[in-house]
Simulated scan of single mutants.
Amino acid sequence: MSKLTGFNIEDMVNVSPLKEGGETQEPKVEQLMSKLRRLQQGKRALEEEIKDIKSVSDSLQEELATLQTEAYQLEGIHKEKEELCRKLQFQCEESGQDSARQLKQNEKSEELLEQYRCEIQEFKLKHRKQRMKFENQLHQLIEQHKNLHSIFSPERLPDEIGSAEKTKCQLLSAEHLKLAQLCHLNEELDNVRKQKQLGTIAAETQEK
């Protein structure tokens, strides 16, 4: 600044005016004292202005440091958010893949369950036919034995009855074997149902 509180820098250069004819006029003591006071006032004004500028500069430096700290913190938060976003996206993709696998597994379980149902129905029908055949054979044997009783002698009757009992035991053994096979198929069907229920519960747990 060239002027401060009435102080002119030109006064420092032109200490005393020139007289007419080019001779230098000696300054008076009062003029010198006045100029000295003005110089001191200018110095104090410059010092105050420098102090104010320094204060403003310090404030700006502090504000800059605060902004840099906030920018660093925001950058860290931004990185954390990006990382969280990537993790959530990865989990979402995994969940979708798990759901697709679970759906495919459920479809296979349904197909297998339907296959077992058909096999069990077929086995029941076959067993019913065999039982009816067995009952018919048993009735025929009973009728035959009744007829044979009148034909053969009483001495041969125990042997014929024993043979009929043996045939009956064989037929009963075959029936028990078929019933055991049917129970085994029922157990396999129950296991498939349990696996399906466990798969459904696991899928619901993953969705939550």
Rank of each mutant, 00 (worst) to 15 (best):
R193P: 01
E63Q: 09
K178G: 12
T66K: 13
A164G: 02
Q206M: 04
Q206T: 04
L18C: 05
D98I: 15
K178I: 13
E82R: 07
Q121Y: 05
K126L: 14
K194C: 03
D52F: 10
I161W: 00
L112D: 11
Q61C: 05
Q89E: 04
N147M: 13
E93N: 11
P17R: 07
L67F: 07
F134T: 13
L113T: 10
L189S: 03
A45G: 02
S2V: 09
A203I: 05
V15T: 04
E114R: 13
V13T: 14
E207P: 02
Q68D: 06
E155R: 00
K168Q: 11
P158T: 00
Q97F: 02
T167F: 03
A71G: 08
I9H: 05
K108C: 13
E30K: 10
K133Y: 02
K196A: 05
P27S: 04
F90K: 11
G162R: 15
L157T: 00
K87V: 10
Q121C: 12
P17V: 11
A164C: 01
Q206R: 12
E135V: 04
L138P: 15
G21S: 00
Q68N: 05
L46S: 11
Q89I: 10
A65W: 08
G76P: 14
L112F: 09
L84W: 02
F152W: 02
Q25K: 11
M132L: 09
E187T: 01
L148N: 01
E110I: 12
R156D: 00
T24E: 14
S163K: 01
K79S: 03
G6R: 03
H78C: 12
